[in-house]
Design a protein around this nucleic acid. Structure first.
Length: 273
DNA sequence: CGTTACCCCTGGAGGC
DNA sequence: TGCCTCCAGGGGTAAC
């Protein structure tokens, strides 16, 4: 489920409930996620107060300076986070609990492509999973010039490039499709063929699409603790994603579905050139 | 180096 | 009803 906006909305939803709260325990019901979950988290974290929650791409990082380390969390394809009351029974795919005095942070991840790791020390950005990550699309560093530099000399289809986290983080299959639609650029275009005007449009549409999705998510999650789906369950209304055969909102041509690098792509063959 | 194929895992949808 | 196939919002690794 989660791309950058869903992860960011989760972060924003968790912050007011968890920040500065002391950990009272942890529970790993299934430790075999994409990588094995550490087993000593309760011992490391119990009694320590959560000092920050940071997002990098689709990763969430929870910081405990007094335990001198970070908890790294990734939701994979099917992961979601919820805050539950301490006595709420765990469901089938609730693999991990981080317990605070009044609430439990609970990770549910049916496909188990997600990740819970402990990063020792104060520099998580040097971890092998984080170090190679590309630019944050909502940061000031992400300009049209920046995007132009990423595209330069690359023959990969622009859609594939948008989804490669070593160049630019956080954009998954949905927001790649929606950003390209908004910029009126075909997902099939070789990256290096985009003209400066198009690059400018694409950079802007990526920002806008992600930002709007975050705002939509934020407004849809009123009470994080008691809401049904957690914060990962919203979705920006898609113009093209998963709308094969339905009319393009702009020109009514049927949305087309193709396959690129093993993933479905959706686009309007008339609007996106 | 750049790009693609395949793999991890479970569940839901649709065809028969 | 069951069984089968395909598909799914991610990403790492191996192979060309």
């Amino acid at each position: 489920m989660p791309e950058l906006p869903e992860v960011e909305v989760s972060r924003l939803g968790l912050l007011p409930h968890l920040l500065h709260e002391p950990v009272v325990g942890c529970l790993a019901r299934r430790a075999d996620l994409r990588l094995p979950m550490p087993q000593d988290l309760a011992a490391r974290l119990t009694g320590h107060r959560l000092a920050a929650i940071v997002r990098r791409g689709k990763y969430l990082l929870f910081h405990w300076p007094t335990a001198s380390g970070w908890l790294l969390l990734h939701l994979g394809m099917s992961g979601s986070l919820r805050l539950t009351p301490p006595d709420a029974p765990a469901g089938l795919h609730d693999h991990f609990d981080l317990c605070f005095p009044r609430v439990i942070l609970r990770l549910k991840d049916p496909r188990r492509f997600g990740l819970v790791l402990w990063l020792e020390g104060e520099h998580p950005e040097t971890h092998p999973l984080l170090e190679p990550l590309g630019v944050e699309p909502l940061s000031e560093a992400f300009t049209a010039d920046c995007l132009a530099a990423l595209l330069k000399g690359r023959t990969t289809p622009i859609k594939t490039l948008l989804m490669s986290a070593r160049r630019i983080v956080g954009i998954g299959n949905i927001y790649a499709a929606e950003s390209l639609y908004r910029a009126a650029i075909s997902p099939l275009r070789p990256a290096a063929d985009l003209r400066p005007k198009e690059i400018q449009r694409l950079a802007a549409s990526i920002r806008e699409t992600l930002q709007e999705a975050i705002e939509a998510g934020g407004s849809s999650v009123r009470d994080y603790v008691h809401s049904d789906g957690g914060a990962g369950s919203f979705q920006l209304r898609a113009a093209v994603y998963d709308r094969t055969g339905q009319p393009c909102p702009r020109c009514a041509a049927p949305i087309r579905q193709i396959r690129q690098s093993g993933r479905s792509s959706f686009y309007c063959p008339r609007c996106q050139k």
